[in-house]
Nucleic acid binder design. Structure first.
Lengths: 201, 201
DNA sequence: GTCTATAAGACGATAGAC
DNA sequence: GTCTATCGTCTTATAGAC
């Protein structure tokens, strides 16, 4: 998303830049709510050019889901491989998941995708992404019950991010207790990377 | 949603009918994706009349969230009060939550709302609904950790419903294991009430 | 209480130049 | 590789009749 302005980039570089912007915008406004023009602006290109590169908004959304899944795959693989500390596997992967808030819109775009199960193209793609994460966890050694608990906590994290619960932190005692219970260790990370309310679209 | 056709109802009855339709349609298509006309059709009234009764689509969505929260409140209260069996409280409330799939679109509309944290009107409303459920659980005797676990599982259930994972049940071994792990007891209920792919809008 | 007609403003996608 | 201009369609909301 770092502005590219007038420079001429390779198609691949532009695609990557636009997908990054798409994650942020789809995450913030949803599949239907996000305009291809919002994404174009965020990537500093024209709206027709976004359509030119991806043909349709639908393709672009699918590419965004794929990008999110790739990032998770890489992050989880690194967490599994990192045996330098004595932190248990569940915590390492959980930490990796929360750290992905640094990829703006990742959790929210996935949540959006998970609500599009009825969509003929996005639905199967979203189910596949979810099932893929299940496989990654199982292959990493989680038993079915542990994988379920991990996913449940992940969906709760996604929800609190989408709700922007961090916005109300400090204003509502119920919210404070909820937030502190859900992010006992990762609180500062989540607060720091909470989506800002002042996004330009 | 039972068709009303040409009959003249009281404003209150119509509102209730439209809110019921709104839950189903907002749940299926999201806040932006749902058209006021879809909701009008589902409630067998004209599109301008929906706007007449609720002023704006935004108001209607807020009314749908409120309806969902009311249903949850009533269902949970009944589960807490029902001490006729020796089923533990967590299971009774959990069962009540899953049974709410019978209110079409309830879980999905809430999920949609939970992604609208940035919306100036819906965001605070959604955060309040979530915090309200937290309070209900805490007041019912759950400690903070148990309330968190309950909500996490609830968000996982919402996700699997939104994904329409039941659509793929029997076709993908990963999905089967995931589904069976997440709904060991309530499987048949969830499968039976899974949103149909052939909704008329 | 409820409808028909329509205004007013999006928004995705296409055409075609540079 | 990238842009400007624009078409066609959809969609919320209003006006006003019955």
């Amino acid at each position: 998303m770092a502005d590219a302005k007038t420079s001429r980039l390779s198609s691949e570089q532009r695609r990557a830049q636009i997908v990054e912007a798409a994650l942020a915008v789809f995450g913030a406004k949803g599949y239907v709510g996000a305009r291809t023009d919002d994404i174009a602006r965020a990537a500093s290109v024209s709206q027709p050019y976004v359509v030119r590169l991806f043909e349709t908004k639908e393709n672009l959304f699918v590419a965004a889901i794929q990008e999110a899944l790739d990032r998770i795959t890489v992050g989880f693989a690194a967490a599994v491989a990192d045996t330098t500390s004595d932190v248990p596997l569940e915590h390492r992967i959980g930490h990796a998941y929360i750290e992905l808030v640094q990829v703006r819109g990742l959790h929210q775009t996935l949540s959006q995708a998970f609500l599009l199960g009825a969509h003929p193209v996005i639905g199967p793609c979203a189910r596949n992404a979810f099932a893929r994460v299940w496989s990654i966890l199982r292959d990493a050694g989680f038993d079915a019950a542990a994988a379920k608990d991990f996913l449940a906590e992940g969906m709760l994290i996604n929800t609190l991010i989408g709700l922007r619960l961090a916005d109300d932190y400090g204003n509502d005692p119920r919210v404070d207790e909820l937030f502190d219970t859900c992010f006992p260790a990762e609180k500062m990370t989540v607060l720091a990377f909470a989506p800002r309310a002042d996004e330009p679209w």
